[in-house]
Protein backbone atom coordinates (compact mmCIF):
# COMPACT_ATOMS: atom_id res chain seq x y z
CA UNK A 1 0.00 0.00 0.00
CA UNK A 2 1.23 3.39 -0.94
CA UNK A 3 1.78 6.05 1.67
CA UNK A 4 -1.26 7.98 2.70
CA UNK A 5 -2.00 11.46 3.91
CA UNK A 6 -4.44 12.36 6.68
CA UNK A 7 -7.35 14.42 5.37
CA UNK A 8 -9.51 16.54 7.60
CA UNK A 9 -12.39 18.74 6.44
CA UNK A 10 -13.68 21.03 9.17
CA UNK A 11 -16.73 23.27 8.93
CA UNK A 12 -18.36 25.45 11.60
CA UNK A 13 -20.87 22.62 12.08
CA UNK A 14 -18.15 20.08 12.85
CA UNK A 15 -15.71 17.77 11.11
CA UNK A 16 -17.06 16.34 7.88
CA UNK A 17 -14.19 14.08 6.82
CA UNK A 18 -11.43 12.63 8.92
CA UNK A 19 -9.56 9.77 7.27
CA UNK A 20 -6.36 8.64 5.56
CA UNK A 21 -6.39 8.99 1.80
CA UNK A 22 -4.09 8.50 -1.20
CA UNK A 23 -4.68 11.76 -3.01
CA UNK A 24 -6.65 14.95 -2.54
CA UNK A 25 -7.72 17.29 -5.34
CA UNK A 26 -9.01 20.73 -4.49
CA UNK A 27 -9.83 24.06 -6.13
CA UNK A 28 -7.09 26.43 -4.94
CA UNK A 29 -6.67 30.10 -5.52
CA UNK A 30 -4.39 29.57 -8.48
CA UNK A 31 -6.32 26.66 -9.96
CA UNK A 32 -6.91 23.06 -8.96
CA UNK A 33 -4.14 21.29 -7.13
CA UNK A 34 -3.45 17.75 -6.00
CA UNK A 35 -1.77 16.72 -2.78
CA UNK A 36 -0.07 13.37 -2.18
CA UNK A 37 1.55 11.96 0.96
CA UNK A 38 4.47 13.90 2.49
CA UNK A 39 3.72 17.13 0.69
CA UNK A 40 5.75 20.18 1.72
CA UNK A 41 4.04 22.63 4.11
CA UNK A 42 1.51 24.54 2.07
CA UNK A 43 -1.18 27.10 2.69
CA UNK A 44 -3.72 28.18 0.13
CA UNK A 45 -7.10 29.81 -0.03
CA UNK A 46 -9.93 27.77 -1.47
CA UNK A 47 -12.49 28.74 -4.04
CA UNK A 48 -16.01 27.43 -4.35
CA UNK A 49 -15.80 24.09 -6.11
CA UNK A 50 -15.27 20.37 -5.84
CA UNK A 51 -12.94 18.67 -3.41
CA UNK A 52 -12.29 15.06 -4.31
CA UNK A 53 -10.16 12.40 -2.71
CA UNK A 54 -9.24 8.81 -3.34
CA UNK A 55 -8.53 6.11 -0.87
CA UNK A 56 -7.85 2.69 -2.41
CA UNK A 57 -10.68 2.15 -4.86
CA UNK A 58 -13.00 4.54 -3.09
CA UNK A 59 -13.49 7.97 -4.63
CA UNK A 60 -15.52 10.71 -3.00
CA UNK A 61 -16.48 14.23 -4.06
CA UNK A 62 -17.59 17.12 -1.91
CA UNK A 63 -18.84 20.56 -2.71
CA UNK A 64 -16.91 23.08 -0.64
CA UNK A 65 -17.11 26.84 -0.36
CA UNK A 66 -15.02 29.63 1.02
CA UNK A 67 -12.05 28.94 3.24
CA UNK A 68 -8.48 27.77 3.15
CA UNK A 69 -6.39 24.65 3.35
CA UNK A 70 -3.22 23.85 5.20
CA UNK A 71 -0.75 21.04 4.61
CA UNK A 72 1.79 20.19 7.27
CA UNK A 73 3.25 17.06 8.86
CA UNK A 74 1.65 14.78 6.30
CA UNK A 75 -1.76 16.13 7.15
CA UNK A 76 -4.08 18.22 5.03
CA UNK A 77 -6.72 20.31 6.73
CA UNK A 78 -9.51 22.15 4.97
CA UNK A 79 -11.26 24.91 6.87
CA UNK A 80 -14.33 25.78 4.86
CA UNK A 81 -17.65 27.41 5.58
CA UNK A 82 -19.59 24.53 4.11
CA UNK A 83 -18.87 21.05 2.80
CA UNK A 84 -21.39 18.60 1.39
CA UNK A 85 -20.95 15.13 -0.05
CA UNK A 86 -22.22 14.69 -3.59
CA UNK A 87 -24.79 12.08 -2.57
CA UNK A 88 -26.24 14.39 0.09
CA UNK A 89 -27.03 17.14 -2.37
CA UNK A 90 -30.59 17.83 -3.44
CA UNK A 91 -30.14 18.42 -7.17
CA UNK A 92 -33.60 19.91 -7.71
CA UNK A 93 -32.97 22.47 -5.03
CA UNK A 94 -29.58 23.33 -6.47
CA UNK A 95 -31.13 23.72 -9.94
CA UNK A 96 -33.73 26.08 -8.53
CA UNK A 97 -31.02 28.02 -6.70
CA UNK A 98 -29.13 28.26 -9.97
CA UNK A 99 -32.11 29.69 -11.83
CA UNK A 100 -32.79 32.11 -8.99
CA UNK A 101 -29.19 33.30 -8.97
CA UNK A 102 -29.19 33.74 -12.75
CA UNK A 103 -32.33 35.87 -12.55
CA UNK A 104 -30.82 37.94 -9.79
CA UNK A 105 -27.63 38.53 -11.76
CA UNK A 106 -29.67 39.70 -14.76
CA UNK A 107 -31.60 42.07 -12.51
CA UNK A 108 -28.45 43.37 -10.83
CA UNK A 109 -26.81 43.98 -14.18
CA UNK A 110 -29.87 45.87 -15.39
CA UNK A 111 -29.91 48.02 -12.26
CA UNK A 112 -26.14 48.34 -12.07
CA UNK A 113 -26.13 47.04 -8.49
CA UNK A 114 -22.60 45.77 -7.87
CA UNK A 115 -23.14 44.37 -4.36
CA UNK A 116 -26.14 42.23 -5.29
CA UNK A 117 -24.35 41.09 -8.40
CA UNK A 118 -21.29 39.85 -6.51
CA UNK A 119 -23.52 38.05 -4.03
CA UNK A 120 -25.65 36.48 -6.73
CA UNK A 121 -22.57 35.37 -8.62
CA UNK A 122 -21.26 33.62 -5.51
CA UNK A 123 -24.67 31.98 -5.16
CA UNK A 124 -24.54 30.83 -8.75
CA UNK A 125 -21.07 29.38 -8.28
CA UNK A 126 -22.22 27.48 -5.22
CA UNK A 127 -25.25 26.13 -7.04
CA UNK A 128 -23.11 25.05 -10.02
CA UNK A 129 -20.59 23.37 -7.73
CA UNK A 130 -23.41 21.53 -5.96
CA UNK A 131 -24.86 20.28 -9.24
CA UNK A 132 -21.45 19.16 -10.41
CA UNK A 133 -20.65 17.41 -7.15
CA UNK A 134 -23.98 15.59 -7.22
CA UNK A 135 -23.33 14.26 -10.72
CA UNK A 136 -19.82 12.94 -10.02
Amino acid sequence: MAQQIALEVVTPAGAVVNESVDIVNAPGYGGDFGVLANHAPFLSTIKIGILSYESGKKRESLMISGGFCEVSNNKITFLVESAEFGYQIDVDRAMKAKERAEKRIAQAVAQNDAVTRVRAEAELQRALARIKAAKL
Binding site: Y29, A40, P41, F42, L43, S44, T45, S72
Partner: peptide, 12 residues
Protein backbone atom coordinates in the same frame (compact mmCIF):
# COMPACT_ATOMS: atom_id res chain seq x y z
CA UNK B 1 9.48 24.47 7.98
CA UNK B 2 8.37 27.48 6.01
CA UNK B 3 5.07 27.25 4.26
CA UNK B 4 4.52 27.56 0.56
CA UNK B 5 1.85 30.21 0.26
CA UNK B 6 -0.57 30.36 -2.60
CA UNK B 7 -1.13 33.21 -3.30
CA UNK B 8 1.26 35.25 -1.13
CA UNK B 9 0.96 35.29 2.65
CA UNK B 10 -0.39 38.84 2.48
CA UNK B 11 -3.09 37.93 0.01
CA UNK B 12 -4.12 34.93 2.07
Amino acid sequence: GEYIYEPSAEEI
